[in-house]
Every structure is written in C-alpha cells, then in structure tokens.
Simulated scan of single mutants.
Amino acid sequence: MNNETTPLLRNHAKEKLANGETVYSMTVRLVRTVDIASIAYTAGFDSIYIDMEHSSFSLEAAGQICMACNHLGVTPLVRVPGLDPALIARVMDSGAMGIIVPGVESAAQARALVRAVKHAPLGERSLAGAAPQLNYRTYPPADVVRVLDESSMVVAMIESQTGLDAVEEIAAVDGLDMVLVGANDLSVGLGIAGQMDHPKVHDAYLRVIKACQANGVSVGIGGLGGWPDLIRQYLELGAGYVSTGNDITFLSAAATQKRQQFA
C-alpha cells in the first residue's frame, strides 16, 4: 500500500458506545498468551482490558494480546498502574486501543491522561511512526496522528471519595472518553468494603452517570461482576461499558463447577 492511501482504523467498542450500545468486557490478569484474544472473541466479548495494575504482566505480553485482539475486532484496553506518560506511550505504541488509569482524583490528572494518550494539539505523545494498530503500514504522519487519536480511548477510574467529589470536573475534560467506576476500591474508601448494594455505592454511580451524561462521556461499570441485577440497573440508568470480571475468577468458577459435578 502506498503512502497516499488513507489509513482505516476502527475501535469497535468506542463505536458501540457512541451508538448507545452496551459494551461487555473481560479483564485479563492471568493469561499471558494470544489465546485469550480468541477466547474473548468466541465468548462474545466486545473488549478486554489487560490489567497491568494488579498483575505481573509484561509490556511484551500485553502488546502481543493487543495485536491479536485488534485482528479479531475485540477492542484491547490496558489498565496501567498509574499516570506515567512514558509507560502509557509505550503501551499505546505496542497496540493498545486505549488506556485506563486507576484512582483519578482531579481534572488536572484527567487532562494529564489525555495528554499522555493523544498527540498534538490535544496531547503531547510522541509519534512513533509505523503503528501496530495500522499493521505497520506507512502513511503520512498527519493521517497517522488523526486516526490513532480518533480511535483511541481515554478512561479515568473513580475509586475514591476525592475522585467522586471531583467527577463533574473530571467528566468535563476535553478528550476523555469514559469514566469507569471502580466499585471495589470505592467501597473500601467509603468504609463499606464489598457492600456493592449499599446506598453510598448507588449514590456514587448516580452521581457519575449524571456528570458523564452532562458532558457526553460514557460510563463504565466496574467491580459488580457478581451483581448482575445492579449491572442491569445502571445500564438502564445510562451506563454503557461493563467490566464483567477477570480470567482468574472465570477459570476458578468453571473449575469449581466442573469438580462439583463429580462430588
């Protein structure tokens, strides 16, 4: 393909969210090989997110899985441990279609996240050249910047009272695509660890949904994989992205169920 051809790149999860459709995601913490991409695809997931915060995942393994997902139309996001622009750039340059940052607590942090993911003028990320998301084909730099930035997702997690108090300002940050509620850490911070049906958690979700709807930002549900009724409730109220659980819990649950068949 010559340099004059305009690159095409689709983020299927981002498109579904824009169309008001629900995106179902699985978290990857255990499996280090590309097989997990095919498993996610066959199981019907729209997206995965690789958890580099709570695992020993290497950048190399994450990048390989991201590339496999891209070929299958399963949107790969990566949760990094924190707001580290150098790591975020390397993750994106390895094939990710978006970045999730945990524990965002201010609009300033959200703007820093956008700058780390996006190129100028919205961000400050360095242009790496041929991108794995574009199958390493060579295109004019302006086209590469445009399609990478249009297709990438910037996701801020709300996991504390401080973050919740600032959610209206966070949701208003230009370039932010989604606010993902991390109900596990949030419940701990609110002094109600694990009580996902507590009114404080419910009020937190309502506040995030209201703030995001006011700014045209998607809402993600996290930490409620074991509470399907709550997930359905928040989807009806306007959330769009569901983190259903991780590969460790999926494998453990299936293994336990299989063993109990022979009890």
Rank of each mutant, 00 (worst) to 15 (best):
M157Q: 09
V167P: 01
E168W: 01
V201E: 11
V181I: 06
H202D: 08
A166K: 08
G163H: 00
M196A: 07
D203P: 07
L190G: 04
I192L: 07
A204F: 00
V201N: 11
G194A: 02
M196C: 10
V167L: 05
L180W: 13
E168F: 02
D165M: 14
Y205T: 08
H198V: 06
R207G: 03
S187F: 03
D165R: 14
V167D: 05
E168L: 10
G163E: 02
V179F: 07
D197F: 14
P199T: 03
P199W: 00
E169C: 12
A171G: 00
D197T: 15
I192S: 08
A193Y: 00
L164H: 09
G175L: 13
M157V: 02
Q161Y: 10
E159F: 08
S187M: 09
V181L: 09
H202C: 04
D177G: 07
A193I: 04
V181G: 05
G175I: 12
L164V: 07
D174Q: 15
H198G: 07
L190F: 01
L164W: 04
H198Q: 08
G163D: 04
V201Q: 12
I170S: 11
A172Y: 00
M157T: 05
V173Q: 13
Q195Y: 06
I158D: 05
M196H: 10
D177Y: 02
L206P: 06
D197I: 13
M178H: 13
V173H: 14
G175S: 11
D177N: 12
I192G: 05
V208F: 00
L190A: 03
A166T: 04
V173I: 15
S160P: 03
P199Q: 00
G189W: 01
D203E: 12
Y205S: 05
V179I: 13
V179M: 06
I158L: 04
I158T: 05
T162S: 12
A193M: 06
A183I: 15
D185M: 02
M196T: 09
I192Q: 08
A172K: 10
D174H: 15
G189H: 09
I170A: 14
A171P: 00
P199F: 00
E168D: 12
V173R: 15
L164I: 09
V173S: 15
L190N: 03
H198A: 05
L190H: 02
E159P: 06
I192C: 06
G163R: 03
A204D: 03
L186Y: 00
V179R: 10
G194K: 05
M196G: 05
V208K: 03
I170G: 11
G163A: 01
L176E: 03
L190T: 04
S187I: 08
E159H: 09
A183Q: 12
A166L: 06
G189P: 06
R207Q: 09
Y205R: 11
L176A: 10
Y205P: 10
I192H: 07
E168I: 08
E159N: 07
H202E: 05
A166H: 07
